[in-house]
Simulated assay, not measured.
Amino acid sequence: MNSDIAVKNHDLKAGFVSLVGAGPGDPDLLTVKGYRVIQQAEVVVYDRLVSEQILALADANAELIYVGKKLDFHCVPQEQINQILVQKAQEGKRVVRLKGGDSFIFGRGGEELEELAEYGVAYEVVPGITAAAGATAYAGIPLTHRDHAQSVQFITGHVQKDGREIEWQSLAQSNNTLVFYMGLKQSGHIMDNLIAHGLDPQISCAIIENGTRPEQRVFQGKLNELALLAEQAQSPALIVVGSVTELHNKLDWFNK
């Protein structure tokens, strides 16, 4: 395997950023390419959900910079994160920007690359397993199934940047599996709006807490119980709405 295949057209002495998705939690789900570039990094800029096992892959001399965020608290503002990446690359460093899940699915990876592009910094993207795929697989919940759902939608539970509401009617009237990221605090709002716009209150749903990690827990019930289920769960957690969640008890393998 050619370790420089993705960066062969760049002068690494001029600085380079690898945007790496670390996966949903289980360190074994890190990609081979992600593993390699972390080991080669001189600087690792990492988020809260990156596991200690993955951080331990970095070189002992690498500079580790924590820029984690949690609900209602940003340790480092996004604008400052962008500038850290630019600055370290301009110093000629080989930088890894390490995020939980996949950087392009509600990870603000695109915003960070726009900043790098503006400053002429060379970069690559190393995809990761997103939480929706990893957490549901470990919970025995297939996102699609011929008897349940032909498609899946990923939705952020956060208020959109411009303040616009989610297209609730479109979601409620679809036959898709609905996966809400970062929606635990908004579970009551999600429940009320889906029901108000026509989704069956008795449809099955689940909350997956700490998906793919040893402490993973799954709370299953009906849509009209979602807010009560959320009271039992802690962040990080993923909300899944749809009849595919009925398969959890039958197909769960991770906690058996």
Results as ranks from 00 to 15, higher is better:
H74W: 02
G100Y: 05
I38E: 01
Q80H: 13
I105G: 06
Q40M: 12
G92A: 08
Y66Q: 04
K99P: 13
E52P: 00
Q80R: 15
G68V: 02
K88T: 09
Q83P: 03
Q53G: 02
I38C: 05
K70V: 14
F106K: 06
P24A: 09
V20A: 08
I105E: 09
L85E: 10
V43S: 13
K88F: 05
G100T: 01
F73V: 13
R97S: 07
P24H: 01
G25N: 12
A89I: 01
P27V: 11
Y35F: 15
R94I: 06
V96C: 03
H74S: 14
E91D: 15
Q78V: 08
V37I: 06
A58Y: 00
I38L: 13
K69L: 10
F106R: 04
N61R: 15
V95I: 11
E79D: 15
F73K: 14
F104Q: 12
Q90I: 04
V37Q: 02
L55R: 01
K88H: 15
G25S: 06
Q78N: 13
D26M: 05
D26A: 14
K88I: 10
A22D: 05
V45L: 12
S51Q: 12
Q80S: 04
K69F: 08
V95H: 05
I54P: 01
I105K: 03
L29H: 08
Q83T: 12
G100P: 09
T31F: 01
H74Q: 15
G107F: 12
L29R: 10
G25A: 09
K93F: 12
D72C: 14
F106W: 07
C75R: 09
G23V: 10
K99R: 07
Y66A: 01
A56K: 10
V20F: 12
G101I: 08
G23K: 03
D28R: 14
T31G: 01
A56N: 13
L98T: 01
D102F: 13
E63G: 03
V45P: 06
L57A: 04
A58L: 02
K88G: 07
I84G: 01
L64A: 03
F106G: 03
K69Y: 04
R48H: 14
P27R: 11
G109R: 11
N82Y: 11
K88V: 07
Y46I: 07
V20D: 02
R97Y: 08
V45E: 07
L30K: 11
A60T: 13
G68W: 00
L29W: 08
I81E: 09
S51V: 00
Q39C: 13
G107T: 07
C75E: 12
D72W: 05
Q80T: 13
P24G: 09
G92N: 09
L85M: 09
Q83G: 03
L64S: 01
I65H: 05
F106L: 07
D72H: 14
V50R: 06
D59M: 01
Q80D: 14
Y35Q: 13
Q90L: 10
F104M: 15
